[in-house]
Design a protein around this nucleic acid. Structure first.
Length: 873
RNA sequence: GCCGGAAUGGCGGAACUGGCAGACGCAACGGACUCAAAAUCCGUCGGUCCUCGCGGACCGUGAGGGUUCAAGUCCCUCUUCCGGCACCA
């Protein structure tokens, strides 16, 4: 046991000592905290709509994935949310603060596979998941979080996922969902395909060591690209989102304006298209095209070389390149490679013939899969041209300089002046861009267009633990949607997790022939399941009407509660989840389910919980707590395990842990775990506890309810300054400074109480205000002390205190006196004194006078009640 | 490479629209209590220097420049770190 750990256990061990620390010197959390949790539940504190006629506030936290039990990341996330929920309730809002579980996903399934392979046991992911849900629920309740559990959802239950299936079928009907063959990302570790968003630099988002492979497969897609423009443009309406998250989404959507240009094919043979279409954002460089490049997968590559003497070489290049996985092919600094097709196209603007290549760096998925190459003004083309000996043609000159194509060591990509560009010579290239695009369009050589990097959302997963895609494959009708009255298509139990491949395909009952809904012929069920990001794309809507068995959610509930007023979660979801949820919300509007097109009005991204870790190379850094690094701290160390049938009381209880979670760092920063700081939080809580016990014991904090006698002076002002400051701090998520101000108020309270002639009524007012202000953060101890002050009702039935501007007024202020910007003294003057008064007082200050000696004051800058600055020389 | 964000004591951080840098906490140090320790309480706490002391001077918010009576805060240049994207034509 470390000295630190011993310190925490002292209150329980020292009761037999010669001078025992009285038991009530420490907050008896194990007894008091659960008692208040029960009482809040009985009173329905968390229930939405408890008091009618109040404005709504929908507060949402990203729901947890139930793996094992609650971890520090959850504690931090929900400590932030719960403080805000309680604050908003006291501020007069009808708060909707729900909780649920993102319960489908790989960890549960992998646990089942592991059990089957290693121990030959059958462990259904459902049991694993439901156990985790029970455990986390108990942990969250033990923390005293005021979630409305009557609205709980768990996405793995048919009662939830049937609606995923309904939405899918409706999307299928209107063409928003479709099955198509595509080159898709396959993670060999997950043994399933992944969406583009789940691939990070060629690696799986779950397995940062695993290269993603490319496979050509028939898969289900949702057409998120149909919403690309709206997803981008309506970001501008999200004033309550952090700018960096919006930027990430903008980059991901990747809009670029450009031009598609048709380059007629030279020496066209029968059966060949008339032209090669390319996409460019640099129409200003059109006169500088010296060759063209096609993606190796481009259909024209094969067509243009068929039967020519280049056929064999080109085919060899293509198969070599295409079988390389895409991410190796497009990796950083990848050598540019290509092969000439032996064919030419004609630049429609110049009539020049340019050779056509196939090149490894051209991507089939973007634009038209073909580019015009301008080596003088594009670095990639430059490198390629250098390697294959293609000429450069300069069409943009830097302002006041001249480029020599033979001497260039890299492409010139900056704006400049058009040269060698026919009628456009002499124009600034920025203007040339527009003018040439217009010209191209007017002449019928091409059309202006917009491209997005965003791709359609691949939702097929070859895994068991997800929503079954409700489709029947019929030999004659193809894929047919399951009729909605047959929903849900349930996950079967007769599954073998011990073998390779999709466990769902091993189920005899699920794979048994089913009649085609269209023609009745025997068909087979789709065994792919949905990406679990589908589940989290609309759960916030299900919370609104979670018990409804007839519709996913009632429209009036959606109209009343949406959008979410405040969403809180990790920034790691800035692209994936938040983009999908925005898309889904818009799609559900267009399917007639909802009316609000943006789900989250305000977004707060909280930082990770980190802890020191010493790496193999001997360096020590603070990094995210993770099981694999072994730098986790289990919250049960502090709240014990009695709530799940154990015997450990825990060291400090929930309030101290919650206080620490919000104390030191601003919530958007990473939080470094520190045993010492945690102890500091616990120390403060106990000090508060002792203070109130002593004061109520001595009767000074008895039941005086009369108005304070007299002004109250400084202490009264401190009370009201705390109310104002802390209220503002809560509103802007600055819990750390709110706590700092609460500590200051507490010290003032101690000082005031120590004065022999302290006004008991004012003392009581200060004490009550202090409890009210901290109650959202430390709800248990505050409610307990509140009741010990003689209140029968919970502190959470009280309104948030309001500050009195009159009480903030001061009679005297201290003014900083500067000479040439340096503070040379301070003077105390009546508040609101004018410049002349302050000047006189300032000049009388010895140190000021000394510095002004022999100098002439040329000017004095005066800020009322703050400072005066003499400009003297 | 591109796009964001950040840099303040030994540490986490505070400082609302430019107006007294270092709130609050942690650590450290000194003291009280104790046989002793823990706990608890009180005090000190950016650096350098002058002064017996009271007090005072100079330096100080990543580096360099600028604007201003006044800059952690605004502008320019640079460095480092974090996050995102990355052959997207």
């Amino acid at each position: 046991m470390t000295p630190r750990e011993r310190a925490w256990t002292i209150p329980r061990l020292c009761t037999e000592d010669a001078r025992p620390m009285a038991r009530e010197d420490f907050f008896p959390h194990a007894e008091i905290e659960p008692r208040w949790q029960r009482r809040w539940q009985e009173e329905g504190l968390a229930r939405t709509g408890r008091r009618t006629g109040r404005p709504k506030f929908y507060l949402l936290e990203m729901f947890p994935y139930p793996s094992g039990h609650m971890h520090m990341g959850h504690v931090r996330n929900y400590s932030i949310g719960d403080a805000l929920a309680r604050f908003k309730r006291m501020r007069g809002f009808d708060v909707l603060y729900p909780m649920g579980f993102d319960a489908f996903g790989l960890p549960a399934e992998n646990a089942a596979i592991k059990a089957a392979r290693e121990r030959g046991e059958t462990l259904n992911p459902r049991d694993f998941t439901e156990q985790s849900i029970a455990s986390i629920t108990a942990d969250l309740r033990r923390m005293g979080f005021s979630h409305d559990w009557e609205r709980e959802v768990a996405t793995c239950r048919p009662f939830y996922y049937r609606w995923n299936q309904l939405f899918f079928l409706q999307m299928l009907e209107c063409g928003l969902a479709e099955r198509r063959s595509a080159a898709v990302n396959w993670c060999p570790e997950c043994k399933t395909v992944l969406a583009n968003e789940q691939v990070e630099s060629g690696k799986c988002w779950r397995h940062t060591e695993t290269d993603v492979e490319v496979r050509q497969l028939d898969q289900w897609f949702l057409k998120i690209t149909a919403y690309a423009e709206e997803l981008l443009s309506s970001l501008d309406t999200l004033g309550g989102w952090p700018e960096h998250v919006k930027t990430m989404q903008r980059n991901w959507i990747g809009k670029s304006q450009g031009t598609v240009v048709y380059f007629p094919l030279a020496d066209r043979r029968p059966g060949e298209p008339e032209s090669v279409e390319i996409f460019t954002t640099r129409a200003d460089t059109l006169y500088g095209v010296t060759f063209m490049s096609l993606a190796p997968e481009h259909p024209l590559v094969e067509i243009l070389t068929r039967g020519t003497d280049r056929e064999a070489e080109v085919r060899a290049f293509v198969s070599r390149t295409v079988t390389q996985d895409r991410f190796a092919r497009t990796a950083e600094n990848r050598e540019k490679e290509g092969v000439s097709l032996g064919r030419e196209a004609i630049n429609p603007l110049t009539g020049e013939r340019v050779p056509i290549f196939a090149a490894n760096f051209v991507l089939m998925e973007y634009g038209t899969g073909a580019i015009m190459a301008v080596p003088a003004h594009d670095q990639r083309d430059f490198e390629f041209a250098e390697k294959y000996g293609v000429a450069l043609k300069v069409v943009i000159q830097p302002e006041g300089g001249t480029l020599d194509p033979r001497r260039m060591t890299g492409a010139f990509v900056e704006p400049g002046v058009q040269v060698n560009s026919g009628p456009f010579d002499g124009l600034p290239s920025t203007e040339g861009l527009t003018r040439i695009s217009e010209f191209v369009e007017a002449q019928g050589f091409g059309r202006r267009t917009v491209q997005y990097k965003l791709r359609d959302w691949l939702i097929s997963r070859q895994r068991y633990w997800g929503t079954p895609i409700p489709v029947i494959h019929c030999p004659s009708c193809g894929p047919v949607g399951v009729p909605t009255e047959q929903l849900p298509v349930r996950l079967p139990d007769d599954v073998d997790f011990g073998h390779d491949g999709n466990p769902l395909a091993s189920s005899p009952s699920f794979t048994a022939p089913v009649p085609c809904p269209k023609c009745g012929a025997p068909g087979r069920r789709e065994t792919d399941t949905m990406d679990t990001f589908i589940d989290s794309s609309w759960y916030f809507l299900r919370y609104l009407d979670a018990a409804n068995g007839d519709v996913p959610f009632r429209r009036d509930a959606e109209a009343k509660w949406m959008p979410v007023d405040q969403y809180i979660g990790g920034v790691e979801h800035a692209i994936l989840h938040l983009l999908y949820a925005r898309f889904f919300t818009k799609a559900l509007c267009d399917l007639g389910h909802a009316t609000h097109r943006e789900p989250f009005a305000r977004l707060f991204t909280q930082g990770m919980v980190c802890k020191e870790h010493t790496f193999a190379d001997g360096t020590t850094r603070s990094v995210k707590m993770s099981k694999s690094l072994g730098n986790t701290v289990d919250p049960r160390l502090f709240v014990g395990d009695r709530h799940i049938g154990g015997t450990d009381e825990g060291r400090t209880g929930a309030d101290a842990l919650r206080l620490f979670m919000l104390s030191d760092s601003p919530p958007e920063n990473q939080l470094d775990w520190s045993d010492e700081s945690m102890e500091g939080a616990s120390r403060f809580l106990n000090r508060v506890w002792r203070f109130f016990l002593t004061q109520t014991g001595e009767g000074r904090l008895g039941s005086e309810t009369g108005a304070p006698k007299g002004e109250g002076g400084d202490f009264r002002r401190e009370i009201h300054a705390a109310i104002r400051g802390i209220t503002e701090d809560y509103e802007r998520f600055a819990f750390n400074t709110a706590i700092a101000k609460a500590r200051q108020l507490f010290r003032a309270l101690e000082t005031f109480a120590a004065a022999p002639d302290a006004d008991a009524a004012l003392l009581r007012q200060g004490a009550e205000t202090f409890l009210l202000l901290l109650s959202p953060i430390m709800p248990h101890v505050c409610d307990e002390l509140w009741s010990r002050l003689g209140h029968a009702e919970s502190i959470f039935t009280r309104d948030w205190p309001a500050h009195d501007d009159g009480a903030l007024a001061v009679s005297e202020v201290e003014i900083a006196v500067q000479i040439l910007g340096k503070v040379r003294g301070r003077v105390t003057v009546p508040a609101g004194s004018d410049q002349a008064t302050v000047e006189t007082a300032a000049m009388a200050e010895p140190n000021v006078a000394r510095h002004l000696e022999g100098k002439t004051v040329r000017k004095a800058v005066f800020v009322k009640d703050k400072m005066i600055n003499f400009v003297a020389s």
